[in-house]
Every structure is written in structure tokens, then in C-alpha cells.
Design a binder for these strands. Structure first.
Lengths: 349, 349
DNA sequence: CTGAAAGCGCTTACAG
DNA sequence: CTGAAAGCGCTTACAG
């Protein structure tokens, strides 16, 4: 592969001048510029980004460590992060932590070893040692979606509190009184917050959230299945199950179906995180939608600010309720948005 | 950030000895090794992978350029690629081409500039100039899922021919005679092959595949919707729509539902690529499942072979039919596998 | 406007 | 077993 030295020889110039021409430095004569261009063309030369990074101490690469790529929410987040980064001249390298602290550390370490310019993290499980060390060491960093209290890093996330209130209003309006939740890991902020918001919203209606109605999940489908089975085994099973993410909702659907029960007739279901498939599940699932694209964009912008040595602001965007049919026939759901995309006909009248 | 020089000073050794200790070179005294370890520990030293790469001309990084991260099939592929790569000591950088040749070239170029050791590609649209140039230039490369005829690169893919035959047998057994397909881009191998396999399988039953029953899609949901609308507008609409990927099937479901029609009563639906959600759509979708994990693993292994200068073998794995309810009441579907995961009860008896 | 030289942080023959 | 030195491919003060 041709190096800058080859280009210099071909162009009859020094590597210094070639470098300057390549980088659009002003003090290069038009003639030299033309000869460099010609040489680059004939040699098919491409600058070696590794060498350039070593010299400049910048890689123009961002790291993104997320908890689970297979989760459509994170996939969409990753996509919008890459788009915005590309627009700003950065590449992004994704590390999939799979909700495992050790894997999260593996990726953080690898990324740092490769000298990425900044790190976007949705921390698994209250943060892993390596991740916390990186934050302390002053690596430009921004938390997305989840964050770690007490760590001085900007946070870009969405606030589901209002949407959860809308959801509970909707459920209460449909006559439901025994509401359960499948929570995410208590070590994650989103795991805790969604339970807190749910409990608080129930409180406004004088409803309690007993321990038996809190299923412990890990944001994976299988845990949603198990938690739902336990709910169904109770002497007094809940009338509604609210899954704190879309994968646990999938597991809940599995469990309900496996018992030959129906949603929403036998038990209602709602989920945090809206995904395209929820329109087509049986029944379509009522969900809380995050402004995922905007979150990704804001996170990248904040990180690039940090890299430039500026503050990088935290951003909180509201989530919103999307009512479908999985909780029963829609009533008058407060200030929530109602989705009626087309002349939907129910197969069971 | 501490460099190897700092470690050398701290340990009272030369950088050469530190480097050797770090790399597990045999000719380092136990005493020196201990001092290096101690120095590394106190300084929190981590080798700079950029410098190492420049020196060794290897990055231990693989590039993966796929056509659409949001497609669950590719997400799963990416995941298994990363897993296998990690097991072999490689990182992987993913580029999302979004079915756009220009974006594919952007990623290939960026990846090559960063001197990745090898490239895994699922080519968009018959290949982009930069990608073809990379292949000619001898970059270690392997095609996954899709490939480009005439380009001398190992191909790891799955063969859906037998599964498509099983599908057509299943459909024929259910009494369907007017079968349509929503094809992928004709420029992609998977776009063409699935139509060919379908036509061939129909031929075995003396059924034709008229042009009006071939919808031109682009593997995105929206194109599935449009193609389905056109089918439904025909004087004699098809009885079955076979979508060549899962996203176009989603679009087809949208279109059918928007007209107030039902699957499978009004029109049957099947899809290439199986995904977890197909179990929970209304109705559950009959699909052809690829051995995605195995494909990812085999692709990485072939690429690592190539990087090592060896041949790297092409691999073709069979896909298989998974019968659910979207084509009508299951009959006796030849040698296909029938999925009945649990005591499923149909809500409409 | 141009070039010679230093240096980024490593690894690795070479000599001892 | 260890160290001095060269060199990977760039960029960038410095001098002219």
C-alpha cells in the first residue's frame, strides 16, 4: 500500500509538502497541489489513519457501549448515534455489553486502548470498575439512556414519568386496579426509575404496589416470561402487567400465550419502549415511546462538546404514551396520544 | 496517559525489555518481569494500540459492513460475528450501509483507512466501486449472506432453496394456487435467488409466477407495503404473499391491515428470515429461518483464515421452514418442521 | 512556499 | 537476558 513517501517521490516534492497539500494547508502552491493530486490519483494513495492518529493524538472515533444490541431500542439508538457522528466527521465503534459488567469493561478497555476520542455509555448494572475508572480519569464521556448517580458525566436520557402517569390513568380508566410491573435490574437507573414512577402514579389513585406485584427482570425476554409466570401463579394475579422494556414484554406475551390465556381479556399488558412490531402483535401493544433518534443525536453532540473541552450539556426529553389494544378497549385516556393508524378491524368482534 | 517509556523509567529497565515483558516474550528474567508488572500496576499503564498497530501493521480489528442494522436478521448476524471475533482476539467495527452503495463505500473506505485486518461484507446493490476495488486489491475479505458473482472472495451464506420448496409444498397443500412474491433488489444475490427458488418450486406444481405477482421491493418495510397494495389492487389478487425478508413482511402486514383484511383468511403471508416477533404477530408468521449464528461464526473463521494467508473456505448452510398460522390451518407440510411451542390456543376457533 | 528533522508509542532485529 | 537503535507513516514547528 502506497505511503506518503511514495506520493512525495511521484510528485517530486517532500513528504512535508505532500502532507500539507493533503490536509488543505493554505501555504501550498497551486502547482504543488496539482502534482500531489495527480500522484495520489496514479498511486491510489489513501492516508494511513493509524499513523495520523498516533501523531495527532486524535482518532476521530467515538465509542458506544450499550447493554444489548439485540434490543430494538438500542439498535435504533446506535443507528442515530452513528448518523449524527458521521455528520460531524466521526466514526463510531459499538461495544455490546449484553447486560454483563465484565463485557462492558472489556469493551471500555478495548476502546480506550484504541484511543477513541470519546465514549458514549449506557451503563450496565451500576457501572463496572473500568468504566468508572475511565470516567474518573477524565475520558470525554456521556451517559445515554441510563446513568450512574454521583458520577460527573453529562446524561442524555428521556423522562418517562409523565408517560407512566398517563399509562396508569389509562389503565385506571379501563377499570384495572391490580397492576404489576416487571422491573429492570435495580442497579440500573432505568430499572429503578420506571418502578418508582409506576408506584408514584398508582399512589395518586390510592393504589398500592405490593412486593408480589413487582417482578424482578433483567431486561431480557426470558426474565419477562418467568416474572409473568409467577404473577399468574398468585392467588390473586394482577389484572395488568407493565413490562419495563420491550423484550420483557415479549417474554410476558410468551408466558401468557403458553397458558392459553388471552391479552387483554385475561390479563392486560403494556411496555416501556415502543417498537415497530408492537403494531402487529396479537394484540397490538400499548407502549411508552422514547424519542430515540433525538436521544442519539443529543448524546453525540454533547460528547463532541466534551471532546472539544467544553461542558456538554445534559438533556432530558419526554417519553409519550401510545395507546393500542393490549390493555382493553381504549376509554378516554387523559392527555395521552391515541394511535389509530388505519381502519383496524378486530378479528374477534 | 502513561507510555511505555514511563513504565521503563519506573521499572528501571529499557523500553525494549518492558515491551518484551508485556508481550510475553520468553527471554525476560523473572525479576524484570515482576518489576514491569509492578510499574504497570502503579502507573495504570495500558499499551497504546494505535502505536502498536502502526508498528506491527496489524490492528486485530475486523470490519463488518452490513446493509441494514435495523433489520433483526443483520443485528443477530452482527452479534454472532462480534462474539466469534472476540473469542479469536479480534474487535469488530460495524458499518451500516442502509442499502445505499455510497454509504457502503464510505464505510469500506473508512475501515480500510483505519487498517482493519479484514473485511466482512454483505454487499448492497451488486457492490460499490470502493468495495470492488478493495476486493481486487487483495484485502482479506469474505462475503456473508449476499455475494457478488465473479469476485474471488469466499462466501458464507445459507441456501434457502429446499426451504422454499417446503414452503411452496405447504402452500400448495393448503389449496393456494395464486402465489406472489415481494422480491428484494435484483442487484443483490438474495434478491434474485429467492425469486428464482420460488419460481422453480412453483414450476414443480405446474404453477407460473406471472410478472404481476412479482413485487419489486428493497428489503425495507415501506416497499413491502407498496408491493402488497399493488397486489391487492389487481383484478385477481394473489392468495399468498411471500416476502423476501422480514421487514417487507412487516410492511405487507401493515398494508393488509390498513385495508381491513385478515391474514390468513383474506390473504396468506410468509416471510424469508425468522425473527422472535413472528411468534407474536397476528397471526404468527410462517417463515424461513436461516442459521444466523452459525453463519456469523463461519464467516469470521473464514476471514481469519484469509488474514493468516490461507484459503478460507466458502460455506453454505441450509435454511429451514417454520410453519405457523399465517398461511392457513397447517396441513401436512412435507418434510418441513412444524412449530408448536406450547399449548397455543387460537383465539378464533 | 518548501524541506529537513523531530517525534508520536510502540516492536524487533542486532549486538553484547 | 538486556539495551541501543531503527523504523512504522504520518504532522508540524523551525529555518530558509
Amino acid at each position: 500500500m502506497a505511503s506518503i513517501k511514495d506520493v512525495a517521490v511521484e510528485a517530486g516534492l517532500s513528504v512535508a509538502t505532500v502532507s500539507r497539500a493533503l490536509n488543505g494547508h493554505p501555504s501550498v502552491s497551486p502547482a504543488a497541489r496539482r502534482r500531489v493530486e495527480a500522484a495520489v490519483e496514479t498511486l491510489g494513495y489513501r492516508p494511513n489513519a493509524v499513523a495520523r492518529s498516533l501523531r495527532t493524538d486524535r482518532t476521530r472515533t467515538l465509542g458506544l457501549v450499550i447493554s444489548d444490541v439485540m434490543n430494538p431500542y438500542f439498535t435504533e439508538l446506535a443507528r442515530s448515534v452513528e448518523e449524527e457522528a458521521r455528520a460531524l466527521g466521526y466514526s463510531v465503534v459499538i461495544g455490546n455489553a449484553d447486560e454483563r459488567p465484565d463485557l462492558q469493561d472489556h469493551h471500555v478497555t478495548t476502546l480506550l486502548d484504541r484511543r477513541i476520542d470519546g465514549l458514549l455509555v449506557s451503563p450496565t448494572d451500576g457501572g463496572s470498575p473500568g468504566m468508572l475508572a475511565a470516567a474518573r480519569a477524565g475520558t470525554p464521556m456521556v451517559f445515554v439512556d441510563r446513568w450512574i448517580p454521583g458520577v460527573d458525566v453529562p446524561v442524555v436520557r428521556s423522562d418517562g414519568r409523565a408517560a407512566v402517569r398517563d399509562l396508569v390513568a389509562h389503565l385506571h380508566g379501563l377499570g384495572h386496579r391490580r397492576l404489576a410491573i416487571i422491573a429492570g435490574p435495580a442497579a440500573t437507573t432505568t430499572g429503578r426509575e420506571r418502578v418508582d414512577a409506576f408506584r408514584e402514579a398508582l399512589g395518586a389513585y390510592g393504589l398500592a404496589l405490593p412486593g408480589t406485584y413487582i417482578g424482578q427482570g433483567d431486561f431480557q425476554a426470558e426474565s419477562g416470561r418467568r416474572a409473568t409466570e409467577r404473577f399468574l401463579d398468585l392467588d390473586e394475579p394482577p389484572e395488568v402487567v407493565f413490562a419495563a422494556d420491550n423484550l420483557m414484554a415479549l417474554g410476558a406475551l410468551d408466558a401468557v400465550r403458553a397458558r392459553g390465556l388471552r391479552v387483554p381479556e385475561d390479563i392486560a399488558l403494556a411496555a416501556f419502549d415502543d417498537i415497530p412490531w408492537f403494531v402487529h402483535t396479537d394484540p397490538p401493544v400499548t407502549a411508552i415511546a422514547q424519542p430515540t433518534r433525538d436521544l442519539g443525536r443529543a448524546a453525540v453532540r454533547a460528547l463532541v462538546e466534551r471532546i472539544a473541552g467544553r461542558a456538554g450539556e445534559s438533556v432530558t426529553l419526554p417519553a409519550r404514551l401510545v395507546v393500542r389494544r393490549s390493555c382493553g378497549k381504549p376509554g378516554k385516556p387523559g392527555n395521552s396520544s391515541i394511535e389509530s393508524p388505519s381502519p383496524v378491524r378486530r378479528s374477534t368482534p
